[in-house]
Amino acid sequence: MKRVTLLRILVILGAIGLLEGLIHAGIVPRFTIIPPSEMASALAAILASGKLKVDIAVTLTNVAVAIVASMAAGVTIGTVLQRAAALRRILDPLFATYYAIPMYAFYPLLIVVFGLGDVPQICIGFLLAVMAVIINTLNGLDRVPRVLLKAARMHRMSALRTALRIRLPYAAPYIFTGFKLAVAYSFIGVIGAEFITSSRGIGYEISFAYNNFDNRLMYGLILFVLALVLTVNMSLHAWEKRLMMRRQR
């Protein structure tokens, strides 16, 4: 293993160990934070009991739907906008301002419009994720070297084939960056929305546990979310690195 990776793991383990120590030493009170070891055993108990299986499934499904929808919409919109310069210029300020808009502020609206089902949570995840995909798709397509487009004309390819066989493959690493962000934003959006108001899902269960002073359940679930998101994030990072190895000049 590389030295940097090793150091990184040591830093993370050190932080966890420090927290554990501070709590056992009584410097951080136990009713505020339970030690990481207890969080882990709480999580194990939750998973073994299987009583939150439905909530976990609901959250993961909603996150997946948000990711797929934002990728499909984002890549399509990005591809179209890249060819429609006038429209893109007009929308540009919206792109630049997009992430300044407090998306959760729309959540009440979405609930009123779509009811208390899964749709409002998916919408928040989608709204957060889609712009990252659009922006990164545009960024990648903007960088396609002119010489590759000349090569496409030499092969007498139609505009559609050029998009599918030259432009999008070239932009793939940038779109992958968009995908990584879409995954993160979908988790943030869906779980955040569940937390605000919803009747099921991991976010809801955490908020429920907090309101019932059930610290073990709450910290077990928080650990679950953190571990899940970090694992997904790190695997995507590793995958991206492998893909980029071939492309780096």
Binding site: P145, V147, L148, K150, A151, R153, M154, R156, I166, P169, Y170, A172, R246, R247, R249
Partner: peptide, 20 residues
Amino acid sequence: GSVPDGIGVVFQEDSSFPWL
């Protein structure tokens, strides 16, 4: 204004496709 059949072009810039 379109590339005729039977003509091949090699450019100065590297035009190899990095993903293939």
